[in-house]
Design a protein around this nucleic acid. Structure first.
Lengths: 340, 340
DNA sequence: CTGAAAGCGCTAACAT
DNA sequence: ATGTTAGCGCTTTCAG
């Protein structure tokens, strides 16, 4: 706990003006070598550190990036933050983190807060992007990049996963393996991401000329227990299916456990695939198939895009959709058990 | 993107001085009702927002709390951040998040950064608290609370889990169930938390008069694969054991899978317990036993403690050790298989 | 190459 | 009840 020393004290000790100290410290403007040395010595001795607040006030920029996320409960989001941090760190920016509970009101409050704090840009993650969000963003004097959501229609720059595409791709893999009766365990019906995945699933079926059966579609809340319950619901309907696609790992694990508890052999009788590839996918003895995408890259790309926007005068629309990989592992095999 | 308006412009429009505007905005000092109304109207119309930077410069405080964590890859840390955020939010503080890679140099850099940014307090999480950390902290003009590490010896306030205690307690439960040959899958040897858990395990054995066998102790890196490998190593030693304690869920899951793959019945032949209770514990069909503690509470308590320290003039040592619960579930049962 | 001085936008003590 | 003014600590012209 030592006292702060400011620029004028340094100047006094060095017998120069504060302007010269400023020049030395920031290497802005010419200073005679001897006086530079002298000032540096004083700076060294006193441990002088400039008051960033004052500097920011004078420069009218904070080198701060704000981030609003709707939840922090999974590992995905913290990976994304890690990615963001990586970029900011190497560009001398700092991260102001806030967590809205997801309500519009809370989000509005956080946008306002970040505006007050004079952040130079904002990364925004929300469950579902609304017209109101667009309004909030347009009122802001700094650029915003949306994360985890396709906001092309609103014309807001974003970085997101290709939910529909990979859900479709994964489902097509199953179809290629001969599966035609495929169940789907979806996420919350108000989640845009979950709905995009569901759409991908449906498109794959339709493209293959397979009728979409409502009896094979359920909705849950991403958790293991929910996957278990929804799988049970579908089993109770007593219709034959040979594969299940789950909106995420948790639901897939739940489904897997449920099937095994009901003496349904995986993958011999039913293949299981999760549209996700978190640590959970490795937890079961039976290696779970899934779609892999990187949250770390998500954050990384979002931060990159934001910095770019911050540097340009006009905030052009821009988008980045991250790549993915489909991994078929032990939980999936070709349809063999039920022959037509 | 509208232009900012400042206090003097508001004052001019309202035909008053900036002091009066400030009084109205901050509700500091008396203002005649009619002029207050008038000023509020202008504020409303213009959308005036004070420049927080200027205010902070004048007030010499930022309402910012800094946080340095050594990694963001698990769900635990993001839960902790959530807890911190919850407290800060309701106390009008914001969170400046930084992620060090865990190296001393990087941590030093981040402390310096937060100092520059004039945060009012810091929450610090590191893998292993060193003398150097104590020095860095003592140089700081603001209070620091350490998270996830017992820094009692250094006299630095901290909030942590009772690693030794719950590891000991959980092991004792196994001993009470008749187990005497218990294996331990530990974490990295340089992790303080992992070592504390190992110590608890050993203390429980010693208290029960059971010799500690080095052959039953292995070290891994917290991951599922590592648990699998270490379990295999112990199995290869061909010594009989009836229970395994793993330093965390991941290793426990790995151990579980390994045992089952080697036709060892869990829990009939070997009980498995993880010193953890994350989402992973629910992933296997066999409900994994474990120790439950809340990362969210950890963050919550750390933030509470920090705010308290920030309010008092002197930074007294203070500590908070969080409660835990031991959950014995399907993966654990009394020793029956091997009778003496 | 260096210094003086005018901001940056706000708070708070001091006048009136 | 309101205005004046002196900071807060730094950056940046503008002179010299």
């Amino acid at each position: 706990m030592r006292k702060d020393i400011n620029i004028s004290e340094v100047a006094k000790k060095a017998g120069v003006s504060i302007a010269t100290v400023s020049r030395v410290f920031n290497n802005s403007g010419p200073v005679k070598e001897s006086t530079r040395k002298a000032i540096q010595k004083i700076i060294e001795e006193t441990g002088y550190l400039p008051n960033v607040l004052a500097r920011e006030l004078a420069e009218k920029r904070t080198n701060l990036v704000g981030m609003i996320v709707h939840n922090l409960s999974g590992e995905g989001m913290s990976r994304a933050i890690e990615g963001v941090n990586r970029v900011l760190d190497s560009n001398s920016y700092s991260l102001l983190m806030t967590c809205s509970n997801g309500s519009l009101e809370s989000e509005r409050k956080h946008f306002e807060l970040l505006r007050l704090k004079r952040v130079d840009g904002i990364i925004f993650a929300t469950r579902s992007f609304k017209e109101e969000h667009k309004d909030m963003i347009e009122k802001l004097p700094v650029p915003v990049v949306v994360m985890l959501q396709n906001t092309e229609n609103a014309g807001v720059p974003f970085v997101a996963f290709a939910n529909t595409a990979f859900a479709k791709g994964a489902t097509q893999k199953l179809i290629e393996l001969g599966h035609r009766e495929v169940a789907f365990l979806g996420g919350p019906e108000d989640s845009v991401n979950a709905n995009e995945r569901k759409r991908g699933f449906i498109e794959a079926l339709e493209d293959a000329g397979i009728a979409v059966e409502e009896d094979f579609i359920c909705h849950g809340n991403y958790h293991i227990e929910s996957g278990y319950e929804q799988m049970k619901t579908i089993l109770k309907r007593k219709k034959i299916f040979t594969a299940v696609v789950a909106v995420n790992d948790g639901m897939a694990i739940g489904a897997l456990n449920c099937l095994q508890d009901h003496d349904v052999k995986v993958p011999e009788e039913v293949s299981v695939l999760g549209l996700d590839d978190t640590v959970l996918a490795k937890a079961s003895r039976l290696k779970l198939s899934g779609v892999h995408y990187s949250y770390n890259d998500l954050g990384f790309e979002a931060a990159q895009m934001l910095l770019k926007q911050m540097q340009s005068e006009v905030y052009d629309f821009e988008k980045k959709v991250l790549p993915y990989e489909i991994h078929l592992r032990e939980s999936v095999q070709a349809r063999t058990h039920y022959k037509n």
